[in-house]
């Protein structure tokens, strides 16, 4: 169930939420810029640096093919690293904030085992 507008404003302005937003954005925005630049570099090389791309490395495998395969590798690595980063740095903080929103509305004693009146 959604909380009240005041509650969301309060959460949005809280230090914890600012930290979460900062951690997340500091990862996703630079990473996005980086992989788009990396991909653009690859496309630009394909368009304008054809002699370079045609250099043969091993047998018939040339720079163009290697760079193309590296795009696959970088995509897999970024995806894997993001999931690791999110599980470690984002999910726990997001859960804490999530629980704190509901916690304030419910009786405080019901949220934690230790705080139980029983």
């Amino acid at each position: 169930m959604p909380a009240t507008p005041e509650k969301y404003l309060e959460v949005q302005n809280s230090d914890e939420f600012s930290r979460l937003r900062h951690t997340l954005r500091r990862f996703i925005f630079p990473t996005t810029i980086a992989f788009i630049l990396w991909y653009s570099l690859y496309v630009l090389l394909s368009a304008y640096a054809r002699d370079f791309m045609a250099i043969k490395l091993v047998g018939n495998i040339n720079v163009a093919l290697l760079l193309g395969l590296l795009q696959f590798v970088s995509t897999f690595v970024i995806a894997w690293y993001y999931s690791k980063f999110a599980a470690e740095k984002i999910d726990p903080a997001a859960d804490d904030i999530y629980n704190s929103i509901d916690g304030d509305r419910r009786a405080p004693s019901s949220t934690t085992e230790e705080g139980s009146v029983l």
């Binding site: 959604p2 969301y8 949005q12 979460l20």
Partner: peptide
């Protein structure tokens, strides 16, 4: 709409609501 953005941002990052 400052209030609705607060709700959207908190919700999109935490899943609340």
């Amino acid at each position: 709409d400052v209030e609705k953005y607060a709700e959207l941002e908190v919700r999109s990052l935490t899943g609340h609501g």
